[in-house]
């Protein structure tokens, strides 16, 4: 048994400034943080508010921040956190209003989930067979083997820095969920789904991979979002800033093998956008930061061969995907 100092965020409700209450609990290092919190509630402070249910990483109720990281507390042991930080600081999930103490109001999370229409949309002209199961190939199934594992715990939503900075972003869970329907061969709204996110939300993902680390089920939302970006470009072209930037970056490197920063700005931002960047350019030049074009790399012809061979549509729907890191915690 080890005496573990806890600092727990306490808040009376929405908009109230939280305070940190200190508790010490005697538990073994393997003890799940949830168990320690329940011990605090039963022995030290019965007013502590927290949400939990299954205690085995299935229900997705107990996501919180543990020393800043978004985690299911039922499957996170006390020991490593205590050893790394000398204490365990518990806060409610981020990016959502707090109801009380460690309980958040997940309405913004569920609103975004609803916005991606998380259900099969069938084409009435091609109904599913009534008398037998609707089959798909193992390759088709492979495309969404990660996403159905999601337990909607909100850990990714809490960990996402884009969500905290832009209300328009749909967030990792909702977009990963949309991906699951986009690649489902039974779904008929494939292009419409992509079109609804193409304009803005899709391209606000920062690719920071915080969601990949936070997800207890290895759904790897950031990677599913990149999958969506490729599908969107392939199906709908590059009609707006985000996809245009990716496309123009790609063709930019074909020219000289190395980035031409000025050209990229001009092509992505257009004439007016580039004009707006002029004061920044002057400021940079004053500090000796030239934006001179870099000469082409040696062997730029080799790069051009790679482009001529591979700058073609990829088979994005039916390609087997390598296995991920495996599922953390119990249950499936």
């Amino acid at each position: 048994m080890v005496a573990i100092p806890f600092e727990v965020s306490r808040s009376a409700g929405p908009g109230q400034k939280p305070r940190f209450d200190k508790f010490t609990v005697n538990v073994s290092e393997e003890t799940p943080i949830l168990t320690a919190l329940l011990q605090i509630r039963s022995e030290l402070d019965p007013s502590l508010g927290l949400r939990y249910s299954c205690r085995q990483a299935i229900c997705g109720s107990c996501a919180m921040r543990v020393n800043g990281k978004s985690r299911l507390v039922c499957s996170t042991p006390v020991g490593p956190e205590f050893r790394a930080h000398g204490k365990v600081v518990i806060e409610p999930m981020a990016n959502q209003p707090v109801v009380k103490d460690l309980i958040t109001d997940m309405t913004p999370f569920w609103d975004r989930y609803r916005r991606v229409h998380p259900h099969l949309i069938l084409d009435p002209a091609h109904p599913l067979p009534k008398d037998k199961e609707s089959s798909m190939t193992p390759e088709q199934f492979d495309q969404f083997k990660e996403t159905p594992r999601c337990i909607a715990c909100g850990a990714c939503y809490s960990a996402c820095p884009a969500l905290g900075s832009d209300d328009e972003f749909l967030g990792p869970m909702a977009l990963a969920k949309m991906y699951r329907f986009v690649v489902d061969p039974r779904d008929s709204a494939y292009r419409q789904r992509l079109a609804t996110i193409q304009n803005q939300s899709l391209w606000l993902c920062l690719r920071c991979n915080m969601c990949v680390e936070a997800c207890p089920k290895d759904v790897r939302p950031a990677e599913r979002i990149v999958d969506l970006k490729r599908l969107a470009i392939q199906e709908l072209g590059a009609p707006e800033q985000g996809s245009r930037h990716a496309e123009k970056f790609m063709t930019n490197i074909e020219d000289g093998g190395v980035l031409n920063e000025m050209k990229l700005a001009r092509e992505t931002l257009g004439i007016f956008g580039t004009l707006k960047q002029i004061p920044k350019g002057i400021q940079m030049m004053r500090h000796g930061r030239s934006l001179k074009k870099h000469p082409p790399i040696q062997g730029v012809q080799e790069v051009k061969v790679i482009y001529s061979e591979l700058n073609k549509p990829e088979d994005l729907m039916h390609r087997p995907r390598p296995a991920g890191k495996g599922v953390k915690g119990g249950g499936q």
Partner: peptide, 24 residues
């Protein structure tokens, strides 16, 4: 003769191309 890594942007447009550039 090293080329650009693609900075994550080429990967968003074409994964195979991006991997081959860095494979080179």
């Amino acid at each position: 003769n090293f080329s650009c890594c693609g900075s994550g942007f080429i990967d968003e447009a074409n994964q195979t191309l991006n991997v081959a550039l860095n494979g080179r």
